[in-house]
Nucleic acid binder design. Structure first.
Length: 266
DNA sequence: CTCCAGGTCCAGA
DNA sequence: TCTGGACATGGA
């Protein structure tokens, strides 16, 4: 299947750190969208999709209907952000599964991307269906010892307890999705192993709350460098700065900043 | 061996 | 409210 796209960069979108379930295999990305295993490529502008899936579902997943113009307006208006915009034009925040996002970012704390992807893979092979990321119930029923064997370390009880809560309160995500950002954030922070940063990742990536601005070590460093003259700044001040400057699209700007910082282009 | 990785939690000032 | 240390694990 071939899908026409406007302003879409598959590689930047899947490698910018918002999702951990795609693997690059010779110019293709292998992973899953919803319940379908897919292989994706973008050889000459078009998005090529292999797998038992409708084009609408792919389009929804990558949020292809979302107009990036206001994001570009922010990026282009700031000399400091211009390099990231040029490099990653077409990077989109996707509509991934809320549970997967929440779980993956519990795993992400004090961890590195390579290891997070490894743990994603271990969990999916051991507890998931057909190698996809396991449902909350599957993790809830697994023994904590099993999670440790898969590399979770001290995060095992955090993930286990959160999975138990979600699998027994399946409607809870609806409440989070419907709540305004600040209230949703407070609800997510209440989960074990989730603090302000992981909560913002879950809200931005799992619930598409585009005002969420996760401040991790990379964002902290790059924001300090670009906007605070390398002085000490609290994460709270960075957050309020971002909110004031980029408002409801702060999370989008954050993604360009994060990817740019990690790749060393800004 | 030490340091670090998309932090969080807890205790003590 | 702010700060320091512990926390599993594996790669550099």
């Amino acid at each position: 299947m071939r899908i026409k796209t406007k302003d879409f960069n598959l590689e930047a979108t899947l490698e910018c750190g918002q999702v951990f379930g795609f693997r690059k295999v010779s110019e293709c990305f292998e992973g899953a969208i919803g319940g379908a295993s897919v292989r994706l490529a973008q050889p000459n502008g078009f998005l090529e999709v292999e797998g038992k899936i409708k084009s609408q579902e792919v389009s929804d997943y990558f949020d292809l209907g979302f107009d990036l113009t206001p994001v570009y307006t922010h990026l282009a208006a700031d000399e400091r952000l211009l390099p990231a915009m040029k490099k990653f034009k077409g990077l989109r925040l996707i509509q991934q599964d809320p549970w997967e996002a929440l779980a993956c970012f519990i795993i992400s704390s004090n961890n590195n991307v390579k290891r997070i992807m490894g743990i994603w893979s271990n969990l999916s092979k051991r507890l998931g269906e057909e190698g996809r990321f396991p449902k909350a119930a599957a993790i809830a029923h697994a023994h904590e010892r099993t999670l440790r064997e898969l590399g979770l370390g001290y995060r095992a009880p955090f993930l286990s307890r959160t999975a138990q809560f979600i699998s027994t309160n399946p409607k809870y995500f609806d409440a989070i999705r419907e709540a305004p950002y600040e209230e949703a954030r407070a609800r997510v922070i209440a989960f074990p192993g989730i603090g302000p940063k992981v909560a913002d990742c879950a809200l931005l990536y799992g619930f598409h709350k585009l005002e969420a601005f996760p401040v991790d070590v990379w964002i902290h460093r790059v924001m300090r460098k670009l906007y605070f003259n390398n002085r000490k700044v609290s994460e709270e001040r960075i957050r309020s700065f971002a909110k004031k400057r980029w408002g409801g699209l702060a999370g989008y700007v954050q993604q360009y900043l994060f990817h740019g910082a990690r790749l060393g282009v800004i």
